[in-house]
Design a protein around this nucleic acid. Sequence first.
DNA 1: TCTTAAATTATTCAAGTGTATAATCAGGCA
DNA 2: TGCCTGATTATACACTTGAATAATTTAAGA
Lengths: 209, 209
Amino acid sequence: MARRSFHHESEETRRNDLIAATLDAIAESGLKGATVREIAERAGVTPGLIRHYFTSKELMFQAAYRSVVTTMFETADEAAAAAGSDAVGRLRVFVLSNFKPPIVNPRNLSLWAIFISQIPVDPALAAIHREGYLSFRDRLGGHIEAALAENGRNLAPGELRYLAIAINGLMDGLWLEGSIAADMFGEGELAHIALSSVERLLGITLAEK
Amino acid sequence: MARRSFHHESEETRRNDLIAATLDAIAESGLKGATVREIAERAGVTPGLIRHYFTSKELMFQAAYRSVVTTMFETADEAAAAAGSDAVGRLRVFVLSNFKPPIVNPRNLSLWAIFISQIPVDPALAAIHREGYLSFRDRLGGHIEAALAENGRNLAPGELRYLAIAINGLMDGLWLEGSIAADMFGEGELAHIALSSVERLLGITLAEK
DNA sequence: TCTTAAATTATTCAAGTGTATAATCAGGCA
DNA sequence: TGCCTGATTATACACTTGAATAATTTAAGA
């Protein structure tokens, strides 16, 4: 049996490759399929090498989850930042970005659900989730506050917290159902429902002029 | 080694015991810990017996998921049915029941997330989910329609669908975050947020007189 | 060029997995 | 009573898993 040829890589790209392979394996075949051997093969590497970069499979999973969480946050964040100067427009784009690819796709649902399901039995994953959730909600709160101010409305701080929690929950729930069963909803239907619901909750209009 | 004593049970209670043991094992230690041996031990039974009641572990899991879905649906449904004669009150109770025990607890989150995470790789579970989701949303839609009618408002059918999807998503998302990290929210805070958000989305008041 | 440390592979191991099969027990019916 | 069918247990099997270890190759520095 011919020996596999060596292929040296920088530490950073190797770690990224291994994380990507981990996510691919999880998304495609679930936790059950995400074995060390399967991941190694996807990364074009030998199982043993994984131990060289990650002390244990558990730690590699944590790194992979961290990458998922930050990706989802940054996607919405960058979309809003690129949206222009008016606060209402930024809030609209921030909300809508969660109902378009690459956020809404089966792969993300798989990854998200599998990691969520591990939270109750893995405190490290719980901490990663909390950090990502709070970052997202804070950013959402900032957009809400700015959009309302642009309409001449000021909020008590407690009110802002309530609205951010509610709208964040709404977006989570709609994203979830849309990802689980996209065929149950029309094209753009969930995005439209989300946007008009946010309008009612805030009492302002978000639609483009 | 003494042989385990026989214990005859009716087919129905045995199946229920096995399903309960399966759910306990999953909730406590995740998919990884829900092995045939572990489940058998929790049920006070030998691994081989499981094969006598369920052709495969997969089928047993499907039965277990079905039990979770119907339980969550029936809890809200029965609460609303027992709420009295006014439609607004029934809608209020229906919404609130999702933010109280036994719906909000770590065990349910574990179970829910684990099964959701299996949906992308198990079409049978996907079908069970869809059935439960539609039942729940239809029932919610019925309560919404009745509550609005009680306030003298009639809806176009499309409008009702939108509202049911939005409120269902809102409840899902809030329940989810509350279950993942209950300590991030005050006592009754999520229930209050849910109720007042539904009020704004519907344009009617739900609070008790 | 030689040496050394790090990166990568190959091999091995013990534990655990779902499932199949055969032996054993209990209860119902002749 | 005695037997027979189904429920239940015990055992065995083939396979997979994550991890440990030893062997091999590469890259870099003196």
